[in-house]
Every structure is written in C-alpha cells, then in structure tokens.
Design a protein around this nucleic acid. Structure first.
Length: 562
RNA sequence: UGGGGUGUAGCCAAGCGGUAAGGCACUGGGUUUUGGUCCCAGCAUGCGUAGGUUCAAAUCCUGCCACCUCAGCCA
C-alpha cells in the first residue's frame, strides 16, 4: 500500500497524491522506466529513471524496468545490457521486475483480435504513401480508406494471414477504426501492426508482424499493473489514443494506467538526442558512446561523475511541463559538492616548471605531513617527500606579475603547501628562445608547515611535487563539447558548433608518488586544479587521468573579465 | 490555418485567492597554508500582455501575443 507524500515536489506527485486520496488503483503506486534498446542512455534518461524509480521509493511503490522492443530493425542486446548496467549504476533495483514488450507479443496479438471482433480495427491494403495522403493535413480532415468497412470476419482472416507471413512487408497494416476527421492526427485510424521481417533480438524469427508503440505501450502498462505511466511531452497528443486502447481492450484485472507527460531535459553545451549522439560516435567526433565528453550515462561514469551527483542533479532540476535548457554549471556544481566532501587531495603538477633550492643540501630528502582531506579530518594524513628540486605549475610563476597576482615572481615569496616559504632568486632562461627553463630559489627552514614559525603570512600558496620522487602521468582535460549553449539553435548544423578544444591532452604531468597504485575509477582532488579520475586506459607503465571538473577559479575569472 | 501544450529573475523552479520559496549563475564582504571549501550580504514593487471579478489576483474569468509539439508502417 502506497503512502501519500507530505511534500509533493512536482506536479506528478500532486497527481499521485490526489489519486491516493481518491483511493484509485487500490492505493498502489507503480511506475516503469521503458527504454527502447536502440542506443546508450543519457542524462535525460537519467532524469526519467530518477523520476520513476524515485516515485516508487517516495511512495513505497514499485518501478519496473521494461524494454520497449517492438522494432527489431533498430534494437540490439548490446543496448539492453548497457541500459541495465547504467540503471544499476545509478543505484536503482528492479528486483524481479525486468520485462520486455516482446514478452507480450502473443497477448498483444490476441488483443488485436479482440479489437477486430469488436469492429474497432481493420486490415488496410493501402500503401504507406496512400495512407499518408488519406490522413489529410493539420488543417484538413483525412478521408476513410476504401478497406475500412471490411467485415470483422474478413479482417480476422486477413490479420491471421498477416501473421502467417502470407503478405509482403508493408503491403498491409492493421489499423484502429477511430475518426479520420479528428483534429488529433493520432486518432485518424492509427496503425496498430505492420508487417516487418527481421530477426528480433529476443523472439528471433517467430514474428513477421510487430505492434506499434501506441498499441503495445498502454497494454504493456496495463498488464504490469502500472498506475502512472510517465513519459515525455511529445506523447501528449498520444494520450487520447492511449486511453482509447486501454478502454477498448478487456484486460484481466481492472488496471487503468494513467499517462502523465513531463518535459525532457535539455542541457546547455551538449546535444541530447540519440540520433545526434550516434552521429558523433559514428563520425568519430568522440571516441565512443562512453567518451568522457558525452552526456551519456556511460560517458559521465568514465569521466568520473558519481551516481550520487547525477541523482542530486536530477532532483535539483525539478520536473515540469515547460521546455527548458538547464545550465551545465548546475551539473558541475553537483559533482564539485560531492567530491569536495569525499575526494582525497593529492598534489600534481600538470605543466611542470623546475625549481632548484640553492640553500637545500644536495641529496637530502625529508618527509612532510599532508592532510588527506580537510573536510574529513578522520581520513588522516600521508607523508610526502621534499627535496632540493621540485616542480611547480608553469602558470604559478610570472616574470612580470600583474596586480593581484599572489603567486611566485622574481624576488617574491610564496608558501609551498605542507612545506616551506620560498623566495625566487633567479630565473634561468634559454638564451635562444627566452623560454623559462628553471627557477633558482631559497627556502626558509624556519617556516616548516605545522611549526610555530608558521605565524609568518604570505599571500600565495602553491602546490608542488618533488622532482626525483614524482611519477609521470597523462592528464586529459575536457571542456564543453560544443561552443554554443544551444548547438542546434535555428536549424544550424550542430556539428558546426563542435568545440575544437573539447579535449586537451597533457602527456607529461608530474604526480605525487602515492598515486602509483591508484585504482581505475578512483577520484582525487588535484590540489588547486580540480577533480580527476583514473581512466581505464591506465596501464602498468602509464597512468591516465580524466579531469572530471575544475575547481572554481576566481583568479581565472578575474583574468577573463579583464 | 486544425489539435494538444507552455509562459514566474541570466538558467532551473516553488507557489493552487491573503500580498513572490529554494537552487545554479552573478556581485560585494569575512575566514582560509587550496584564489577551493565555508560564512554573511545583495540579486522580480514583479509573475507574457490587456482588460475584468474581488476588500485582496502569479493564482479566478475574457481577449490578445509568444514559444513548443503533431501529418513514421519510429519510439
């Protein structure tokens, strides 16, 4: 028995509360997530998954996973496997309620027979082109097919022969007999079954006729006892048809599922249709469905997003009926918040610049204590080596520092995180190119972190790694996949807006040695840089990191606004 | 031009006749050995628009405007 929610958080929960008050569905709440296995799911699907499974959780109801696999020409087990993995990764469980529309093919066929006997469906011999012509237009009514008035007996026989494979693909269809003059085109005798030979990923070659979505979906819902069938806005004008099917078919039990539509998710700086995502994959603009730049669930996972952050995002964006475009910055906020609390900190240098300490003894190494996560003191600390030669970040040094630049410059002092205050004495350059090769600095032994002498304040603190102890790594920086907020605006080819700098590979980074055995998929905060995740491309010889998201950077913002 | 929807801040989004929640973004300030985090403050005399009803309207009524969506034997 479902429990009414006290604080309905969107219009769908209001509807459900009302149904519960009115004692509909014996007090049950039962939803379903019904993907077609014809591609990898993306964050828009995640919104639907969180909605459907979330409602089941909120109301102590149930949510099924059902594959809507009524079109063998487009579907494949590869996709059903990936979808199951992705739903599980998000943290949802369908228990024993994994269904396939194809499981219902026999019953669907029988229900079609029921409609035929009631005189509510007929076999039509019109060609696809003719059906389109007869359908009329948005403003003019359609006209009835000459085959519309066949007897129930004849229709039953014809439909049986369709099933038996006696007709060519596309030569006949089964249509509902509704209203060719309806203002809603979906009600102008919609096609219920088509002849389409092709091996189905589950039923094999058993069938040569397949039910259409509009016929299979409401019946599947009813058979599973779904109470609230949640779908996206473009199905709004299919609702009368959905109801027509449910009302004209005698389903065992008394289930009257209700279709409710909400607005699909649009995210800025990316695209969200399977067709376009497929195009990016097939034309090689990305490295696959799980490329870390893709908004697919598998892409987000490889990028390093946590399921918690994705679910948090789905909750924050809300559920409504107005088309909207959510700012990618909100997704980034969600993962930053999660990882700020949970990711261990490490020091890495992405673009190394060497520093030699003139006053540090040759060959000496000392171990310094570094906290693992200031947000979680209980995670303790580790020891990191300090020595005569270290690397700092190239852009943490400027020969001619502008105002408000708090980092290193000739004659200036900064603190090295967890270590000492240092001073820049000399800049060594390539005589030919003028390129800065290394810095000569001194360190102040009185200023070791954690000692009393640390009362001395300097404006800037830099991260660093000991040159001889650091290990090499490749770091992949990701930026927006598209340069425009809405890549598909005004009919422009979305691919023209692809960001040429969406992937930046830094092959020669220096990372602290504690990362040596970092497990694939583990996440870290690279101090002052961002959150990073070990990519599966990592091998014994080569560490590879993905940047999940940068840290907020007010200095960079200042520069940009100038 | 027919049917179905939607208009609340730069972006999402609550609100359901009693005088505009919250989040993101943005802007100031404080703390800080991460220019991170955290904290504080600011950010719609206004709810597409014009009328009407009411003591009282984002909420109810009427007209208008804008945008989305539908003419697959896809889902």
């Amino acid at each position: 028995m479902a429990v009414k929610k006290q604080d309905p958080s969107n219009f769908i929960e209001h509807v459900i509360n009302k149904d519960l008050e009115e004692n509909k569905n014996d007090g049950r709440v039962h939803t379903r997530f019904p993907p077609e296995p014809n591609g990898y799911i993306h964050i828009g699907h995640a919104k639907s998954i969180c909605l459907n499974f979330g409602i089941a959780e909120n109301y102590q109801g149930l949510c099924n996973l059902r594959f809507d696999d009524t079109n063998p020409s487009k579907e494949d087990v590869e996709y059903v496997d990936s979808i199951k993995e992705d739903v599980r990764w998000l943290g949802y469980d369908w228990d024993d309620r994994l269904y396939y529309a194809s499981d219902y093919f026999d019953r669907l066929y029988d229900y079609a027979g029921q409609l035929i006997r009631k005189g509510l469906a007929y076999v039509d011999d019109l060609s696809p082109d003719e059906i389109r012509e007869y359908r009329g237009t948005l403003t003019e009514p359609g006209k009835e097919s000459p085959y519309r008035s066949r007897s129930a007996e004849e229709n039953a026989l014809l439909f049986e022969k369709m099933k038996a494979g006696e007709y060519k693909d596309g030569s006949k269809v089964l249509r509902a007999k509704i209203d060719m003059a309806s203002g809603n085109l979906n009600m102008r005798d919609p096609v219920l079954y088509r002849i389409q030979r092709g091996t189905h990923h589950r039923s094999g070659d058993k069938w040569c006729i397949y039910p259409m979505y509009d016929f299979a979906h409401p019946i599947s819902d009813a058979l599973e006892g779904i109470t609230h069938s949640i779908c996206t806005l473009e199905f709004e004008d299919h609702r009368p048809l959905y109801n027509w099917i449910v009302e004209n078919i005698d389903i065992e039990g008394d289930s009257r599922p209700k279709q409710i539509e909400f607005a699909r998710l649009n995210l800025s700086h990316t695209v969200m249709s399977k067709r376009k995502l497929r195009q990016l994959v097939e034309e090689g603009h990305v490295r696959g469905w799980n490329d870390p730049r893709m908004p697919t669930v598998s892409g987000l996972r490889r990028r390093g997003y946590t399921p918690e952050s994705v679910k948090d995002f789905c909750e924050r964006i809300g559920v409504a009926k107005g088309n909207s475009m959510v700012d990618l910055a909100l997704l980034e906020h969600c993962i930053r918040q999660d990882l700020n609390n949970n990711a261990p900190r490490v020091m890495t240098v992405l673009r190394p610049l060497k520093i030699v300490f003139e006053n540090y003894p040759e060959g000496q190494v000392e171990m310094l204590e570094a906290e693992n996560n200031p947000e979680k003191p209980e995670t303790g600390s580790r020891q990191i080596p300090f020595s005569k030669e270290i690397y700092i970040e190239k852009d943490d040094f400027l020969e001619e520092p502008p105002k408000k630049f708090f980092r290193l410059a000739p004659g200036r002092e900064v603190r090295l995180k967890h270590a000492y205050i240092i001073k820049c004495k000399e800049v060594i350059k390539d005589e030919q190119t003028g390129e800065i090769l290394e810095l000569r600095c001194t360190y102040d032994p009185e200023t070791k972190s954690g000692t009393n002498a640390t009362v001395r304040k300097v404006k800037g603190t830099l991260h660093w790694v000991s040159a001889s102890h650091a290990i090499d790594a490749e770091v992949r920086l990701y930026n927006h996949l598209f340069v425009k907020e809405n890549p598909e605006e005004q009919g422009a080819d979305f691919k023209d807006n692809l960001n040429p700098d969406s992937l930046e590979i830094l092959p020669a980074c220096k990372v602290e040695s504690s990362l040596k055995k970092a497990a694939v998929s583990s996440r870290y905060q690279f101090l002052r840089k961002g959150y990073f995740c070990v990519d599966p491309d990592t091998t014994e010889e080569k560490l590879v990191f993905n940047r999940i998201v940068s840290l907020k950077d007010t200095w960079a913002k200042l520069q940009k606004n100038k």
